[in-house]
Design a protein around this nucleic acid. Structure first.
Lengths: 169, 169
DNA sequence: CAGTTTATGTCAGCCTTGTTGACATTCCAA
DNA sequence: TTGGAATGTCAACAAGGCTGACATAAACTG
């Protein structure tokens, strides 16, 4: 009977919106996010870094030469908070900060080779879990997964997310 | 660690597993989780609480009379960390801690009426966003969403998650 | 019963990563 | 050329993770 259970009753396509179904979705998000961060966390820990470092490395790698201000918008933290993380990454030689050419108030951020190496290790660990989940769930599930996640974002963030151009599809 | 590692190169049914697709999925998780927590965070902030309090309230509500130890397993934090949060909730009269009947070493945790009120406000805000996302994405997407999330959890956690019996509301 | 294990709570102290405030530098427009 | 806006840095504080040590009470075991 599990099958046609969606459209069976009066609410038609709303039957899956019971509080119970929603609660399951909420808990799934909570537990899945833990898994999602678990593998990089282990690597980071071994290097004495935290999740904040990972996020910085990810988005610097993603948009070479990005400015601090741009990074702030994406990460949604204060500049002071980001700066602390950025400083250690620069001191440790993972990130290079170059004074902007056009506007010398800006700093353009790049990964060094060392930074790139760590970023690859982190993202590969995370991709590996994502890949396994995608394989287990199948292509159609993946499409649904992305749709729901996108619908869950704040409007402004979703706009940014969708506008980030793909690098080599 | 192949360089241009494009996992799609060989198999047609793996076409969606390019590094680029995986990266998009990773970023979608990151941004969506922010949205997922944004509404409760605002409410919590107004009450002087944090996310840790929300998690405790959620799972106490979800499993009335649960023990401290059980909560520790679900939340995946140390008892010192949980205790700090629990203590303030008890002091503030949101949670009641009763000595266990069967085993008097245990403490069974319950929400008071006040605790229930806050929990409802928090979960309703979160459900509302989830509901909107589900509506926007459609039933089929929701099924995929849940499948991928479940596949992303750590094995032990997934086992717990799946075993949590439904409370038919 | 004596000794051990289990469940819980508490104190102290550390770390990461948020926050706000103050301030220096640079750019730009009036 | 000067004042305001933008950008980034330094300092200090708070939340909430963590570990370690220890206390208590109850349960279990030989």
């Amino acid at each position: 009977m599990a099958e046609g259970s969606n459209s069976a009753m009066g609410g038609e396509n709303l039957l899956f919106l019971t509080d119970e179904q929603l609660r399951k979705g909420i808990e799934a998000m909570f537990f899945a996010y833990r898994g999602f961060t678990a593998d990089p966390d282990r690597i980071l820990d071994a290097h004495g870094y935290g999740r904040a470092h990972h996020r910085a490395l990810h988005f610097i790698n993603r948009t070479h030469g990005t400015t601090v201000n741009n990074l702030l918008n994406i990460l949604g933290v204060t500049k002071q908070s980001l700066n602390r993380v950025l400083r250690t990454l620069i001191e440790d030689g993972l990130v290079e900060s170059r004074v902007g050419r056009k506007d010398r108030r800006e700093r353009n951020l790049f990964l060094t080779e060392k930074g790139d190496t760590l970023e690859r290790a982190l993202s590969e660990a995370q991709r590996e879990r994502m890949r396994a989940a995608y394989r287990a769930a199948g292509p159609q599930a993946v499409a649904g997964f992305r749709l729901v996640l996108e619908a869950m974002m704040d409007d402004e963030i979703r706009r940014q997310y969708l506008n980030m151009r793909d690098r080599r599809t």
